[in-house]
Design a protein around this nucleic acid. Structure first.
Lengths: 249, 249
DNA sequence: AAGTCATTGTGTAAAAATAACACTTTAAAA
DNA sequence: TTTTAAAGTGTTATTTTTACACAATGACTT
């Protein structure tokens, strides 16, 4: 399997023979179909949601599937993932990040297909499900089961990734309206991390970070005292990122 | 590019046509050669090292390359990465983890080749470079340049990954002898994180974690007062893992 | 044997971060 | 006007982090 061509010389040393025809070398490699799969999270009714479509494979009839597509011939995988999002949701500038690659040879019933999982976060309000994609729906992450392929595993890994990521990076704001109340923000964290947090300490924490811009506006659709609306100051954040040098495990 | 076959029916609703022949579907996908590349870190003389080989491509003559190989026809990528390690270093039970996938179409001069980067940590003392691989050498991570393909970028990403990872997981012990002094441990952290740490606080931190087993032995090759030797209690650690629920960015 | 050298090993106090906890205010709805 | 539901707000105790200096040890030198 190893691909270096080597020869012993008289000093018992080796010299690799240099390969001059890189194209020929690459042509000798096995080739594998590649897909990208997008784990698209949203937040609605105080629940973390995931956008799924019915599998279009007979063998997975009635099972849910991540939004994916194969990667084009010379397409960078990030581009493929953005393309999937654009084609399915019409959204352009969404948060997207590669999570990991899944390669089990039996993961696809049609033969070996390698897939690269991407995690995307989008604000459900900004998003119009395209009518064409009738079976495209938001599902509660907590309750979804019966997924096609290894998509349950991919979703779980992306969910764990998100839980960790949201603690260390301001991703969560991609799931909220541009202007949000602290209660909404806390609900988001509680839903994603699946824990309860102390309201006073939560507020103290975010105010201390000092990345929330007070818009002066208030909620207007609530049947009780409305909360103040804030925006996240991405600009200030990007100039302030600090590095943690602790050790903790 | 999108692969769902859909039809409007009289209610202006869509029904996907189910695909019954998954094999045929997969055969219609473009296929890409896949490699794994191992970023193998070691630690010696208080420096973080990386194991590299001379590129065997003419076009990259005299440049350094990560240890990689293409993935076999039905080979799980993790297995391919372990195989590369075994073939190149003779080591079996080493630490290995997938980091990310690189897909730029121009990253390989022989045409599109997608590579999945793995990070591996190994104890240089336990490792015998195989004579066959004459050009296989440890290099200082700080000083290496002139790498083949996009391997410099891959190395940098894996290095950043390692810096973060070592703060939160007990990986570092894979780079040290089984029994090590606290000075060695601190040197390792200082080298990888590229910072100076306070010796007393460093010790306090590790003793407080309570995962170090005092072997009762001492260093015996130092020209000064020898330090105590410790082992990491992986067993206790695996039963104690705690979860951090804070928010910090 | 005495002295020098380099590094180990140790404690405390101040500062910062976290965690626990309850009452008053506000606006909407009844 | 009253009720209701959530907003908004501070203090204290605890834990964690940081900063910092000197005595003990063993190897090496003379």
């Amino acid at each position: 399997m190893k691909n270096d061509t080597a020869l012993m010389n008289e000093n018992n040393q080796t010299h690799a023979l240099l390969i001059s025809d890189a194209k020929k070398l690459v042509q000798s490699y096995p080739r594998v179909p590649i897909t990208v799969d997008c784990v698209i999270f949203g937040f609605d009714e105080n629940e973390l949601k995931i956008l799924l479509i019915r599998s279009d494979l007979e063998i997975f009839r009635d099972k849910w599937s991540l939004l994916g597509d194969f990667a084009g011939d010379n397409e960078v995988l990030d581009d493929a993932a953005y393309r999937v999002l654009r084609e399915r949701t019409g959204m352009e500038d969404v948060y997207l990040e590669q999570v990991r690659t899944f390669s089990h040879p039996d993961r696809h019933p049609g033969g070996r297909v390698l897939t690269v999982a991407y995690c995307s976060l989008l604000n459900i309000e900004h998003h119009q499900l395209k009518k064409m994609d009738n079976e495209l729906h938001w599902h509660s992450v907590k309750h979804i089961t019966e997924m096609a392929f290894d998509h349950q595993q991919i979703m779980n890994e992306c969910y764990k990734w998100l839980q960790k990521r949201i603690q260390e990076h301001p991703l969560g704001f991609n799931l909220l309206p541009e202007k949000f109340s602290l209660r909404e923000l806390q609900n988001l964290y509680e839903a994603i991390l699946d824990i309860k947090m102390d309201r006073r300490n939560f507020r103290k924490k975010f105010f201390a970070m000092d990345f929330l811009i007070d818009t002066g506006e208030y909620e207007d659709d609530v049947p009780h005292r409305p909360g103040k609306l804030y925006q996240f100051d991405f600009h200030k954040y990007s100039h302030t990122k600090k590095k943690w040098n602790g050790i903790d495990f």
